[in-house]
Design a protein around this nucleic acid. Structure first.
Lengths: 245, 245
DNA sequence: CGCCACTTTGAGTAGTGTCAATGCTGGTGG
DNA sequence: CCACCAGCATTGACACTACTCAAAGTGGCG
């Protein structure tokens, strides 16, 4: 039996071999479908509009996903981290809809779509994991939609800085910042000058300090309040979801 | 055998009974999990932050999905039409993340999450359909992200008007418009006044005419060019997606 | 008829974008 | 070693888009 291309739990695809319903033969077949690759910072995993043949699972590192307009304007869709899957668009389309660029050294497992369909056919646990990964991506995407549509420049920047923290963390002070001002702007629907000015303003107010490649958070609470309160449905309204049958 | 709650092909869930691998008994069990409901325009299918127990399949009609900030600002995530599924967020979370409101008379099939997990377990064809539906939602969401982040007010409005058309249609002249100016604004990250002004400007330029509840498109080509060109990756760049192994 | 929600239009302004100049840093090559 | 260069970040001056506030018009419905 050949060794599995991919060993860690963070890889969605690899969980195929953990599913109890599979025979040794099936496990072996799945292992052989996986292709492991390494990319350097700046390398492109796949290009928008290219033919989509592989689905990628990120094992390690960080990747940015962008879409662009023909005049060169480009928008960062999200930053992808270990455990997430990339290239899911090909479940419906024949081409990638985003360009995926490595921000750091990156390790991936990839699998051909047609192979993946086989795995899904045989292995409901894998499809559930894929469904959960997609749902998570979708929620992240919709959070960005809300922020792009509703928030002001300072709110957007504060929100972004907070996403650099592990969730529910009020301790951490210094976090790495992999994006340039331009990339932050491309993510937040702003210009690099505006991002720079807002960051300078936060610095003046002693909310953050900026080193090269890192940000120090000096005042979590204030930053959170600047980020704009996160929903929780204020409107009492008439909550009658009448169903007629 | 009880009759199926839901007959039309547009319902993702109902395709369960089309899957050839199921026994008559299994089909019967799945049928009994489905609950059919009707809502009137303005009714709420589910509220943001409520406990998520059901997944909905839209059989008929149109629904808007919104998320809000605690100060009342709200953003329309997307408009959902027949054949799409709603409430997918509960695959990961325990609560809905959006409020779903009927824009028209709406027919749905709904199913409990725990029941759906059983169906997926037994029926790979259903999970594939769910995966494709989620991927489609995600692509739609990312198109909105791009437009919110990159486009100007006139580009946004033009883009929105074009989405009212069936895809690749250069013929249709009159299309229904279910959204108010306020709702269009909530979808495009603008104010209702700005939307109104842009629409008036388009009218003056004889690109559209606005009746109540409908829009007449007088100049498809111009509208498309105003909408901003749709990607297609202009940058030649060095397309070396080096992989190191 | 009068009320209410929706839409349109105007005037003034705040917030971002644009353009341009400067400074900083790291890398390259003489 | 230093000079030079390219990319990134910062800052300023200015322009302009889109927002705010306000008023008036429109249409449906009790």
């Amino acid at each position: 039996m050949t060794s599995c291309a991919c060993e860690i739990n963070a890889c969605v695809l690899c969980e195929a071999r953990l599913y109890p319903g599979l025979t040794a033969e099936q496990v072996c077949r799945i292992r052989n479908m996986l292709i492991r690759e390494t990319y350097h910072a700046g390398d492109v995993l796949f290009w928008e509009a290219d033919a989509a043949t592989f689905l990628f699972a990120l094992r390690d590192g960080q990747v940015k996903l962008i879409r662009s307009l023909s005049d060169g304007r480009q928008q960062i869709m999200r930053l992808s981290i270990a455990g997430q899957i990339l290239g899911t668009e090909a479940f419906n389309d024949k081409t990638y809809n985003r360009t995926a660029t490595a921000l750091t050294e990156v390790n991936t497992c990839k699998i051909r779509y047609q192979d993946l369909l086989q795995v899904i056919e045989q292995n409901p646990a894998v499809s559930l994991r894929v469904i959960q990964a997609l749902t998570h991506e979708l929620m992240q995407a919709e959070t960005l939609i809300r922020d792009l549509g509703l928030k002001t420049a300072p709110e957007k920047v504060a929100t972004f800085v907070l996403t650099l923290l592990p969730p529910c963390d009020n301790q951490t002070v210094e976090v790495p910042l992999l994006l340039s001002r331009r990339e932050m702007a491309e993510m937040l629907g702003l210009t690099e000058e505006t991002v720079s000015r807002v960051m300078a303003e936060f610095h003046r107010k002693k909310i953050i300090e900026t080193g090269k490649g890192t940000i120090r958070l000096l005042h979590h609470a204030l930053l959170r309040s600047l980020a704009g309160h996160e929903s929780s449905m204020p409107q009492a309204g008439n909550r009658n979801s009448q169903s007629v049958n």
